[in-house]
């Protein structure tokens, strides 16, 4: 089998199609929600909705509001919280700050930005992979997660895990020839791109809705800021 041909396919036409599906799919999802009708809120606010929303974003991003040992909420299951946070941290570092990925962004967007030094990205990637394994185990054993996990939830994990793992293996030149690892990585990325609009991985888009709603409600009631 000629891996280079597979690689060219995965980096070429398949990627293009996957990206189009990704864009179109997310646009579809977005529109379906945006035009479903929104009630005008007639409640007289006691605080600032906008301020609340902004704080809500900051909290969501800086994660400090429910640091387990302070808020006493995650004392029973800290793994779910810590692993989830580290996974996202690693994922973002790898996607947006890894030198090779910035080259991809540059070719897509027309501009790039400085990268994080490889060894740090590398460690974050490793941490993210370990975190994913922990999340996987947690999903296997936690009674709530067992209850709410359907096939889609397992596929989510799988489709995110393969690009992460293959990317790591490729960066370290492990097991297979480089172009084999590269092909697997790209194929997995393409599949992920197609899967995202079909699944709850698209939460990164609706995150902004939910956070804004949460913040506006709390701001309106003068709970925050």
């Amino acid at each position: 089998m000629n891996w280079l041909a597979i690689l060219d396919f995965a980096r070429g036409p398949f990627f293009e199609v996957a990206l189009l599906v990704f864009i179109g799919g997310l646009a579809y999802r977005l529109m379906r929600i945006l035009l479903l009708g929104w009630h005008f809120d007639r409640i007289k606010p006691a605080g600032s909705k906008l301020g609340g929303a902004l704080i809500s974003y900051l909290r969501g991003i800086l994660i400090w509001p429910f640091i387990p040992w302070v808020r006493n909420t995650f004392s029973k299951n800290p793994v779910i919280y810590i692993a989830g946070g580290l996974f996202h941290l690693g994922l973002f570092a790898v996607i947006f700050l890894d030198a090779a990925h910035i080259l991809a962004w540059q070719s897509l967007l027309g501009f790039g930005w400085p990268s994080l030094v490889t060894p740090i990205v590398d460690w974050l990637a490793a941490i993210a992979i370990v975190a994913m394994i922990l999340l996987f185990i947690n999903r296997l054993v936690n009674p709530v997660l067992k209850l709410i996990s359907g096939p889609a939830e397992w596929l989510n994990l799988l489709f995110v895990f393969i690009p992460m793992l293959s990317g790591y293996i490729m960066a370290h030149h492990l097991f297979f020839a480089y172009e084999v690892n590269f092909s697997i990585h790209m194929l997995a990325v393409d599949i992920l791109l197609i899967w995202i609009p079909l699944s709850r991985i698209s939460h990164f888009m609706f995150y902004f809705f939910a956070r804004a709603i949460h913040g506006a409600d709390f701001g309106k009631r003068a709970v925050i800021p």
Binding site: L36, G84, F206, A210
Partner: peptide, 21 residues
């Protein structure tokens, strides 16, 4: 169910964290 309900239902990642609360 309008945008308000739908967008929040769509945002859920099924992470199960809410159970801890």
């Amino acid at each position: 169910t309008g945008g308000w309900v739908a967008s929040q239902l769509e945002a859920c990642t099924r992470c199960g964290m809410c159970a801890e609360a």
